[in-house]
């Protein structure tokens, strides 16, 4: 699988990338799945969720992506009646947030290694521990800073081909 685009996290005034997808757990636990459409090989789950860590609680504040009918996905596509903010009470587990320079690029999943990993542990949506793991220091002055994906193939938006044919 191609390296995957991560969800976004606003934490302590910074905009970071998460190498885990807590919304996937919601679907696994039986939450309604609106059938997202992958827009590229680097976004097989079909959406990018934006999260905010506020007062030690994990909130979902946006969903961007396409649904299989070609329309734009939003928070309300999954959580009707909650267009602005959803408390992620279903999520327990660790979220990895890579930071610093790239040490080793791996073109698969979230496998690339960065100088540091911020590890956030949640219990039912509440932050219970936060640690930083040091993976090394890059000796490459040109190494990219922050999480990124090296290459991807973009898929057409559902319905656009049919419209073009019409």
């Amino acid at each position: 699988m191609t390296a995957q685009i991560g969800d976004l996290l606003f934490y302590q005034g910074e905009r970071l990338t998460m190498c885990d997808a807590p919304l996937g757990t919601y679907f696994r636990l039986g939450g309604a799945y609106p059938e997202f459409e992958p827009s590229s090989t680097a976004l097989i789950r079909g959406y990018v969720a934006t999260w905010e860590l506020l007062d030690g609680r994990l909130y979902l504040i946006a969903i961007q992506g396409w649904l299989s009918d070609g329309t734009d996905a939003s928070l309300e596509s999954v959580f009707r009646g909650y267009p602005e903010r959803v408390f992620a009470h279903w999520y327990s587990g660790r979220v990895r947030v890579p930071r610093g320079k790239l040490l080793k690029y791996v073109h698969a999943g979230y496998a690339s290694v960065y100088e540091r990993d911020l590890l956030l542990d949640f219990e039912r949506g509440v932050l219970v521990a936060s640690t930083e793991k040091h993976n090394g220091v890059s000796d490459n002055p040109n190494a990219p800073e922050g999480y990124g994906v090296g290459a991807l193939t973009v898929f057409p938006r559902p319905g656009t081909q049919q419209e073009a044919d019409d």
Binding site: L29, G30, A32, R57, Y82, F87
Partner: peptide
């Protein structure tokens, strides 16, 4: 029962997973 000070979860058992619970 799930409580959120910002009201970002419905006040029902299992919160946002209430429909799945009812189906179960």
């Amino acid at each position: 029962r799930v409580f959120d000070p910002l009201g970002a979860v419905p006040d029902v058992p299992f919160g946002h997973l209430n429909t799945a619970w009812q189906d179960f």
